[in-house]
Measured scan of single mutants.
Amino acid sequence: NTKMVRFKKGDSVGLRLAGGNDVGIFVAGIQEGTSAEQEGLQEGDQILKVNTQDFRGLVREDAVLYLLEIPKGEMVTILAQSRADVYRDILACGR
């Protein structure tokens, strides 16, 4: 149940992230009207890879910085997997 989305970065990627470290990086929110939303990313999706950067094992701050450093107008390719069950557990633990 993995999906790959590809879009051109606007002012931002339009994602709020949660998790990090051993639990993985998850989409915690999506800005309305962004390409990330239009391409089908959803809250609870685990981000496995962005462009050439493996997101598994990253701390959340490093994942956020990586997304911020992608220049506006560059193509962004995100490999994600729907993991809403794991995401709910992360929220319940306050991570």
Results as ranks from 00 to 15, higher is better:
residue 9 K to T: 00
residue 7 F to W: 03
residue 62 D to W: 00
residue 93 C to K: 14
residue 19 G to C: 00
residue 87 Y to D: 10
residue 36 A to T: 03
residue 2 T to D: 09
residue 11 D to C: 06
residue 17 L to Q: 06
residue 30 I to G: 02
residue 41 L to A: 00
residue 65 L to C: 13
residue 62 D to I: 04
residue 37 E to R: 08
residue 56 R to G: 08
residue 12 S to M: 08
residue 4 M to V: 15
residue 62 D to M: 12
residue 26 F to D: 00
residue 68 L to D: 15
residue 24 G to M: 03
residue 3 K to R: 06
residue 48 L to N: 00
residue 37 E to N: 05
residue 31 Q to V: 13
residue 82 S to G: 08
residue 28 A to K: 07
residue 88 R to I: 03
residue 47 I to C: 01
residue 71 P to S: 05
residue 63 A to Q: 05
residue 36 A to R: 06
residue 27 V to M: 09
residue 54 D to M: 04
residue 72 K to I: 11
residue 88 R to P: 12
residue 73 G to E: 03
residue 30 I to P: 06
residue 70 I to Y: 00
residue 89 D to H: 11
residue 45 D to L: 03
residue 26 F to C: 03
residue 95 R to G: 13
residue 21 N to K: 15
residue 1 N to V: 10
residue 15 L to H: 05
residue 30 I to M: 07
residue 55 F to A: 01
residue 51 N to L: 00
residue 46 Q to V: 07
residue 70 I to Q: 04
residue 56 R to D: 05
residue 42 Q to R: 14
residue 51 N to Y: 04
residue 35 S to M: 13
residue 33 G to L: 03
residue 6 R to C: 12
residue 22 D to T: 07
residue 77 T to S: 09
residue 49 K to I: 03
residue 32 E to W: 02
residue 42 Q to I: 09
residue 60 R to C: 12
residue 33 G to S: 07
residue 83 R to E: 08
residue 61 E to V: 01
residue 51 N to K: 03
residue 84 A to H: 14
residue 38 Q to F: 13
residue 22 D to L: 01
residue 93 C to F: 14
residue 88 R to G: 10
residue 38 Q to S: 12
residue 44 G to W: 03
residue 20 G to S: 11
residue 41 L to K: 00
residue 15 L to G: 02
residue 69 E to G: 14
residue 4 M to G: 00
residue 67 L to H: 02
residue 33 G to N: 10
residue 92 A to K: 13
residue 79 L to E: 13
residue 89 D to R: 12
residue 78 I to V: 08
residue 53 Q to M: 13
residue 8 K to N: 07
residue 81 Q to C: 09
residue 82 S to L: 03
residue 19 G to P: 05
residue 4 M to D: 07
residue 39 E to Y: 14
residue 15 L to C: 04
residue 52 T to H: 13
residue 66 Y to C: 08
residue 17 L to S: 04
residue 35 S to N: 14
residue 44 G to Q: 01
residue 71 P to E: 07
residue 50 V to M: 06
residue 45 D to Q: 04
residue 12 S to D: 14
residue 33 G to D: 05
residue 64 V to F: 12
residue 32 E to G: 12
residue 93 C to A: 14
residue 55 F to I: 06
residue 17 L to F: 07
residue 4 M to T: 13
residue 49 K to Q: 13
residue 90 I to G: 11
residue 43 E to R: 08
residue 94 G to N: 15
residue 2 T to K: 13
residue 32 E to F: 05
residue 40 G to E: 02
residue 11 D to L: 03
residue 77 T to A: 04
residue 83 R to V: 03
residue 27 V to P: 00
residue 9 K to I: 03
residue 83 R to K: 12
residue 45 D to R: 01
residue 77 T to D: 10
residue 75 M to V: 11
residue 31 Q to M: 12
residue 79 L to M: 11
residue 53 Q to L: 09
residue 22 D to S: 07
residue 48 L to R: 02
residue 79 L to G: 03
residue 31 Q to K: 09
residue 88 R to M: 10
residue 45 D to W: 06
residue 47 I to V: 05
residue 32 E to A: 12
residue 24 G to A: 05
residue 1 N to W: 03
residue 86 V to S: 12
residue 66 Y to D: 00
residue 46 Q to I: 12
residue 40 G to K: 06
residue 10 G to P: 03
residue 2 T to S: 06
residue 26 F to L: 05
residue 34 T to S: 15
residue 78 I to Y: 00
residue 93 C to H: 13
residue 78 I to T: 01
residue 21 N to I: 12
residue 46 Q to E: 13
residue 21 N to D: 14
residue 94 G to Q: 14
residue 34 T to A: 11
residue 7 F to M: 03
residue 50 V to F: 05
residue 47 I to Q: 09
residue 35 S to K: 12
residue 39 E to T: 15
residue 69 E to C: 07
residue 92 A to Q: 12
residue 41 L to S: 03
residue 59 V to Q: 15
residue 77 T to C: 10
residue 4 M to L: 14
residue 38 Q to R: 13
residue 27 V to G: 02
residue 50 V to I: 08
residue 58 L to Y: 06
residue 1 N to Q: 00
residue 18 A to H: 10
residue 80 A to H: 05
residue 28 A to G: 07
residue 90 I to D: 13
residue 61 E to I: 02
residue 24 G to I: 07
residue 90 I to K: 14
residue 63 A to S: 00
residue 67 L to N: 07
residue 57 G to E: 09
residue 7 F to G: 00
residue 23 V to H: 09
residue 29 G to W: 11
residue 26 F to V: 03
residue 68 L to H: 15
residue 6 R to D: 03
residue 67 L to F: 08
residue 41 L to D: 07
residue 48 L to A: 00
residue 5 V to H: 04
residue 5 V to G: 02
residue 86 V to I: 11
residue 33 G to M: 08
residue 75 M to W: 15
residue 70 I to C: 00
residue 87 Y to L: 05
residue 40 G to M: 05
residue 59 V to Y: 11
residue 40 G to V: 04
